[in-house]
């Protein structure tokens, strides 16, 4: 990048902090926004500013929302006795697309990771535990990722939740629907066979 401008550098650096964006893509996006008609750039900055200013965490489940509580927590037709715990808002969107889950959520915005200095208090776990206090919740489904940190978080939560007399379950790991087994990697297949169910 040979444009001598700290402003351009700042823009590129801003893009690089986004997930999945490397140096090359960041440079391309920055140059595009600077050379395309200025409406495109201003539309992006307006959209970003407005969205960021109007979206906050739901005071109940910590999902991203414009209204508080969020539409899912406010929906009386949903099963409020069933909470699905996920790492990121992205997972809520994915599960909602599936359309079959009728319970509510709790978003941790992270996982336990001592190496990153993230413990129970950083994840605000007391917010989750407080939801279990009034006895209205029957079951918590742990849907953290199958990374080492996601597994450890699920295990830690399962003990804490069980102590509070609420049933805990972990989402099943296995092969994708509608796909051949040959597309699943070895670790997934091993898990799927280990976690097989009786017919």
């Amino acid at each position: 990048m040979f444009i001598e401008s700290p402003r351009v550098t700042r823009l590129i650096d801003a893009f690089r902090r986004l997930p999945g964006v490397g140096r090359r893509s960041a440079e391309r996006m920055a140059l595009h926004l600077l050379s395309a008609p200025e409406d495109i750039a201003y539309e992006l900055s307006d959209a970003l500013r407005e969205a960021r200013a109007s979206i906050r965490w739901c005071s109940v489940c910590s999902h991203l929302t414009e209204t508080d509580p969020c539409p899912i927590c406010a929906d009386e037709r949903r099963d409020h006795g069933l909470i699905c715990v996920v790492e990121q808002p992205f997972a809520v969107i994915a599960i909602e697309k599936g359309g079959s889950y009728k319970g509510v959520y709790h978003v941790l915005h992270g996982v336990l990771s001592p190496l990153d200095g993230i413990g129970p208090s950083e994840l605000k776990l007391d917010r989750l535990f407080r939801r279990l206090e009034d006895g209205a919740v029957r079951e918590v489904v742990l849907a953290t990722n199958t990374t080492p940190e996601g597994e450890a978080t699920a295990l830690f939560l399962s003990r804490q939740i069980a102590e509070r007399g609420v049933a805990v379950s972990r989402i099943a790991h296995g092969v994708p629907m509608g796909g051949g087994l040959e597309y699943a990697d070895e670790a997934t297949l091993a898990q799927a066979i280990q976690g097989r169910t009786k017919l």
């Binding site: 336990l112 001592p114 413990g119 129970p120 080492p148 597994e151 450890a152 978080t153 295990l155 830690f156 003990r159 804490q160």
Partner: peptide, 9 residues
């Protein structure tokens, strides 16, 4: 409890 969360893996 936190230590124990890492043990099964």
């Amino acid at each position: 409890d936190l230590l124990r969360a890492w043990e099964p893996q």
